[in-house]
Design a protein around this nucleic acid. Structure first.
Length: 298
DNA sequence: CTCCAGGAACTCC
DNA sequence: GGAGTTCATGGA
């Protein structure tokens, strides 16, 4: 971990704990939370309010620092430092990507997307969220995940967060696999998940039984083996597996190809271009290209 | 009305 | 092993 994070102190705003973190290199909080990799953050004035790992926080970027409200120093070290990828060297990652690929569109996408970081999300939430994402659009994915959380998640305390967008509102953690499995397919279907309901249940069943185990999966080194492991779940194919692995299983090499990325390849790349060209940080390159294309559609 | 969305399973050949 | 079809839903 960077030496910048050796001395984070818990500060207080009334009885609300928070931390200030001076980050290293480029960071773009807004793009990071709004580039389609996560679905539970919303902008409230100049802050981002959201839940991850069962905790409600509000984050803002200000003068080379991230300020994380409702986080102690302990939570920062245990959860948020890695969640927000503050412990990774993106200057080195970008340099490696540019060494591997000089495609003009990619160089531009990297320039535009600089500061985006791949979050390290909860594995189960990533699996479930990207099953929901299939043949779906981002606003509706968010709605379904909210409905799932409201119905089956745990309500979190908002008493210290009244001045940070939580007043008069309720917040719920993302439900566990047990809670989803217990609710049953008909109930999951009733939350407008459509044909994905049976896929969500199958994932929950395999998660609860241990047939799919996050720690075991993280031990698999080869990407194609990790993909095959997740594809044991009905409704998880190459693309969903790639997203889940990239955003929830501690790896940066998966390169999810969706309808947007197909457009990117048709528009800017040679026919025989292989995403493996990007190397071990291909997933970061993918996110730059994805965000670039999504923000530059005519 | 049709078309599309961070796709995958299924059914043909 | 590819190409075409189907699957829920809601917004454009």
């Amino acid at each position: 971990m960077s030496k910048f994070f050796e001395d984070i102190k818990t500060e207080y705003e009334g009885n609300l704990p928070f931390v200030r973190v001076r980050y290293d290199g480029e960071y773009d909080l807004a793009k990071t939370l709004d580039c389609g990799q996560c679905f539970r953050w919303e902008r409230v004035n100049d802050e981002w309010l959201g839940i991850a790992f069962g905790k409600l926080i509000s984050v803002k970027q200000e003068g080379g620092e991230l300020v994380i409200y409702n986080s102690t120093a302990e939570d920062f070290y245990n959860i948020w430092c890695h969640y927000f990828a503050l412990d990774e060297d993106y200057e080195a990652i970008d340099a490696e990507l540019l060494r591997n690929c000089q495609n003009p569109a990619f160089v531009k996408a990297l320039e535009c997307g600089k500061g985006i970081r791949i979050l390290h999300q909860d594995p189960w939430e990533a699996v479930c969220s990207f099953i929901i994402s299939q043949n779906n659009n981002i606003p509706r994915i968010k709605k379904i995940i909210d409905a799932l959380s409201f119905a089956l998640g745990k309500q979190v305390d908002t008493s210290t967060m009244q001045n940070h967008g939580a007043a008069g509102r309720e917040f719920y953690s993302f439900p566990t696999a047990d809670a989803i499995l217990g609710a049953g397919e008909d109930f999951i279907f009733s939350l407008k998940t459509g044909f994905r309901a049976k896929y969500i249940i199958d994932a929950a069943q395999k998660w609860c039984s241990g047939e799919i185990n996050a720690e075991n999966l993280k031990q698999i080194e080869k990407l194609d083996e990790a993909v095959a492991y997740l594809c044991k779940v009905k409704g998880i194919g190459l693309k969903v597996a790639s997203c889940a692995l990239l955003f929830g299983f501690e790896r940066l090499d998966p390169f999810p190809v969706d309808v947007w990325m197909k457009r990117v390849f048709e528009k800017y790349f040679e026919k025989d271009f292989a995403p493996a060209t990007f190397g071990k940080y291909a997933g970061v390159a993918q996110q730059y290209l994805f965000d670039y294309e999504r923000n530059n559609q005519q």
